[in-house]
Simulated assay, not measured.
Amino acid sequence: MDTHGVISVVVPAHNEAAVIGRLLRGLVTDARPGEFEIVVVPNGCTDDTERVAASVGEPVRVVPVASAGKYGALRAGDAHTTGDIVIYLDADVEIGADDLRRLAAALREPGVLAVAPERLVATARSSWTVRWYYDFWQQLPVVREGLFGRGVIAVSREARRRLLALPDVMGDDLAASVTFAPDERRVVPDTRVVVHAPRTLGDLVRRRVRSVTATTQLQRSMPKAVHAARTTRADLLGVVSRSPTTAPKLAVFLAVTALTRWRARRPIHSGDFTTWLRDESSRAV
């Protein structure tokens, strides 16, 4: 597949030594000479993320920054890119070189500014409550159509200006998704990213508390866009209507959502939009 030039890849990484090698080796194995430039930005790391990333070799380049923070890491990595297409990757996902090629090709279609791959949530090692939650969550319209929750977003040179203008918010992937109108963004068929789910209900709640807190923060600066990305009662009932066997999973989804909102009250009321509740269980390899 002709990609018409180098594809730039930016990977911010904070203490991702356990998983970043998996991502990078998966990309480099099938990469053609000169096809990708991969910029890894270890930020505020206290583990071996920098060493593991550097050990992969070309076309990986490591640009460490001292302070922890995804916002700063993304921009530091972006400054070292040269391609007209830039793909931002979370360090804990899995995606192949051919998927990146297909994303790049989709961005060359008229009017398309931002794309993401189809999402496969890996739940084989998760508890049944986590599996049921994600079984239902993935069927929601906003989840199927939005670019968030995938750990991957690819943008054109024009679109990068919009992303770089976004404020420093916790929910960077949701912000990136709602920045583009529905006709400007696309989930590309026949591409896939593997997103590893939490193993336990407690880890899932931690991850969802972060999401609720981040959404609340973003809503204050982009209220109309975030409101359009919310799940409605009609969306929930629509899933069950299309697939009646999901009714028990809806009960789990609603219970987790209620618990998550209750747990998120404290950070929201205190204005704590910086504490990153990280799920370590999904990074165990």
Rank of each mutant, 00 (worst) to 15 (best):
T200D: 14
L164F: 00
R125N: 11
P267W: 06
V63W: 01
V155G: 08
V155M: 11
L23F: 05
Q138T: 15
L163P: 10
D172L: 03
F136W: 02
D190N: 14
A214H: 06
A225C: 00
D47K: 01
V143Y: 07
T123V: 15
G21P: 14
A73H: 14
T231A: 07
R208N: 13
A13Y: 04
R261P: 06
S270D: 13
R101M: 01
V195L: 08
H227Y: 07
G151Q: 14
I153W: 01
R102H: 12
F180K: 03
A53K: 01
A228N: 15
I38H: 02
N43E: 13
A225R: 14
R75N: 14
F253M: 01
T191G: 07
V169A: 09
A234P: 01
R192Q: 09
L27R: 11
Q219V: 00
R185D: 02
L89N: 01
D2Q: 04
G171W: 07
A91R: 02
L277F: 15
R266E: 14
A214R: 06
L174G: 03
L113R: 15
H80E: 15
T275V: 12
Y134Q: 07
D168Y: 06
L163W: 13
T275A: 13
M170S: 11
I95F: 13
T49C: 02
G202L: 06
L120S: 14
S127C: 09
L103S: 01
V121K: 04
L259P: 04
D48E: 15
R230H: 07
R125M: 05
R102T: 13
L107K: 07
A258N: 09
D78C: 10
I153A: 04
T81S: 03
R230I: 00
E94H: 05
R160H: 12
A79Y: 05
E37G: 10
D235F: 02
L120D: 14
K224V: 12
R161T: 14
F136V: 01
E16F: 11
Q217E: 15
A122S: 13
G44Y: 03
L74Y: 11
T257W: 12
L201Q: 09
H196D: 04
N15Y: 06
R102L: 13
A124Q: 12
V187M: 12
S8A: 10
R61A: 11
T46E: 06
A13F: 02
E280G: 05
V121N: 08
A181G: 09
G26F: 03
G202M: 07
R150N: 10
A258M: 12
Q217G: 03
T81H: 02
A264H: 05
P223Y: 02
A234R: 14
R51F: 02
R206A: 12
V143M: 09
V152Q: 10
L24S: 08
L120Q: 15
G238V: 06
G26V: 00
M222F: 15
L74I: 02
V187A: 12
T213Y: 05
R186W: 08
A165K: 11
A104Q: 05
A66F: 09
V9N: 02
A122G: 05
L236I: 12
Q139G: 01
L237F: 13
V285H: 11
R210Y: 01
R220E: 09
V285S: 10
D190M: 08
V193I: 11
R157W: 05
